[in-house]
Amino acid sequence: MDDTRAILENAVNGLLMEEVTQKLLHESEEGAFAGALWAKLEAQGLIAIFDGLENPFLLAGAIIRACGRQALPLPLPETLVVHAVLPDELRNTLGTTPIALAETVAREGSSWVFGRAAFGRQSTNVLGLYDGTLIFARKAELAGKGEAIARDPRDTLRAAAVETATPKHDLTALAAMMRASQMAGAIERVLELTVRYATERVQFGKPIGNFQAIQQQLAILAGESAAATRAADAAWEEADRGGNVRIAAAIAKARAGEAAGKAASIAHQVHGAIGFTAEHVLHHFTRRLWTWRSEWGHESHWHGELGRHVLMLGAEGLWPDIATPA
């Protein structure tokens, strides 16, 4: 099981490392759609994984973390989450087309408005949640452009005709796990970039990584990276086991979100002025970290949900809950 994840993760990382160049990131952030790359992802079989594969959530988590490592400016994570929650008969009609995922859904007269739809302008298909029901539109129109500081599209879409369905899984939880895994991947990359910079940049006659003050900061960053990755991966493992996904998702999003803030801060401090420039690659990751940690519930939101869980468990119930077979 772990081997499958490792092999797949290596394959995705290999492909994305080659394809997601800084040039592609710049062009995508200026509004271009990386259609050729989407076709390669399709050809690698990375999209239709909820179609009979064993442990699909584990694979989804690994793919999504790899997307975060490369700051992939395409809705592969969103499309995987949509595939996971849609009933089979609906999902089977979609093939491997990119699908936008909206954070809010509202009714306006006879039409449906999808808010903060990730990669909305790059897809006519959009999914959101309204009152516990999935609302899916095949022919949504772009009603307004937006983008968070990630500079990935967060658009408003409007549709007259929609299909509704009961979610197979908790969409909010899976979407939170998606952002958690993207953050875990991006933090891993930020750690790599920062360690490399510290070994290359020379001041006072030696690499700055020789200074204990820098070493201690990088050790903290490494710890945050490890915690974010373990928390995020654990949620997908829980989903394949059929366990308490909601709680695992809350842990993942809250812990990775906290790590994201600390990681971005340390990485920029160590990089100094060069890391603050548009020319340097670091900001493609840190801007996304600052975006993803707010989406699908920020830390306090999920802390609140977890806190109510803890209070219900009480002093005697907490340990048995923590030690429940994982």
Partner: peptide, 21 residues
């Protein structure tokens, strides 16, 4: 206080998973 307990729980659960690993 509720949120503080929630944060504590997220850290504790993650540390245990790391330690088990």
């Amino acid at each position: 206080a509720t949120a503080a307990f929630g944060r504590l729980y997220a850290h504790l659960a993650t540390l245990r998973r790391m330690s088990l690993s």
